[in-house]
């Protein structure tokens, strides 16, 4: 045990807390300063967490097998770059992205088909709602059996996982345009497709982006979990489950860091596109103050 490390952690934490308490009470006139504070507060919280983690693991002499300090994980990240890159390619570029695009677009197309037919809407939608509450990751072993160990089976899992949230959200989004707007389109004598593209799809955009955001995390989870069931000797899920067994915990954490950054960026890109596309929505306009 090393008291001075613990003291550093404690002091840093209290200092950062006090600073944040002070900053959030400021009400600056200047817009840029206000935005800067909004950005700085969560960042300082994250840095504080890392610092506490670093010093507490060192101060309490926590075995690096249990919880390596962030500095060690960072070191590993630099050393094993090529392994991590290969895993990233296998899991993210091949499985997640392909499956995400295929699953979301098929869910979207089925939703439009459902929208055209009231019968399908009444029959398929309750089933879709039911299925999206089920533990769909469970199909992973089946898909691995059907499509083999390589990335094809992971794509299949991701497709199945992302399909239903997209379906359910798009259908409810297509119902979002209100009657007065639809009536206006009728007075223009616009066709079904014209109404769809000019009015109903834009109105459905917030729902569709909601599904895309949900799916971005589901897709990563699906691909990684599917790799627990069998994979060629590359891939994030494979690496995590084998390196845990070999007690290379720092490599596991590095892999998790990559997954975290990839997941956050994936989500962030979708959120950015959402802001551009649904600029008219109150939640986006409100954000600009």
């Amino acid at each position: 045990m090393n008291i001075s490390f613990l003291m550093v952690a404690l002091v840093f934490w209290l200092g950062a807390w006090a600073l944040n308490e002070y900053l959030v009470r400021l009400e600056p006139e200047n817009q840029t300063v206000a935005r800067g504070i909004d950005l700085f507060v969560p960042i300082s919280f994250g840095i504080t967490l890392l610092v506490i983690w670093e010093f507490v693991t060192k101060g309490l002499n926590v075995s690096p097998i249990l919880l390596p300090p962030p500095s060690m994980i960072w070191g590993r990240l630099l050393v094993s770059g090529s392994i991590l890159w290969a895993d990233f390619q296998q899991t993210f570029l091949k499985s997640v992205l392909v499956g995400f695009v295929a699953g979301c677009s098929s869910g979207f197309l089925v939703a439009i088909a459902v929208d055209r037919s009231p019968f399908l809407k009444r029959g398929l939608l309750p089933i879709g709602n039911f299925v999206s509450a089920l533990p769909i990751v469970g199909v992973a072993p089946i898909m691995v059996m059907w499509f083999g160990f390589d990335y094809q089976s992971k794509v299949a899992v991701v497709v199945v996982m992302t399909f239903f949230p997209m379906l359910v959200n798009t259908v409810s989004g297509l119902a979002a345009a209100n009657d007065i707007e639809k009536d206006l389109m009728r007075t223009y004598a616009s066709s079904y497709w014209r109404t769809l593209f000019a009015l109903r799809l834009p109105a459905a955009a917030p729902f569709i982006f909601n599904a895309l955001k949900i799916n971005s995390t589901l897709a990563l989870i699906g691909a990684i979990v599917a790799e627990f069931f069998g994979t060629p000797i590359v891939g994030m899920g494979f690496r995590i489950s084998t390196e845990v067994g070999r007690m290379n915990v720092d490599l596991v954490w590095a892999e998790i860091a990559v997954a975290a950054v990839a997941g956050t960026c994936f989500y962030g890109v979708i959120a950015l596109i959402e802001r551009k596309v649904t600029f008219w929505h109150p939640s986006v306009r409100g954000g600009r103050g």
Partner: peptide, 19 residues
Amino acid sequence: DKSMMPWIIASQTIPILAI
């Protein structure tokens, strides 16, 4: 609110099942 909310949201973009 200001310091934790963004992290709570970010925590879910991490594929936690990997851990």
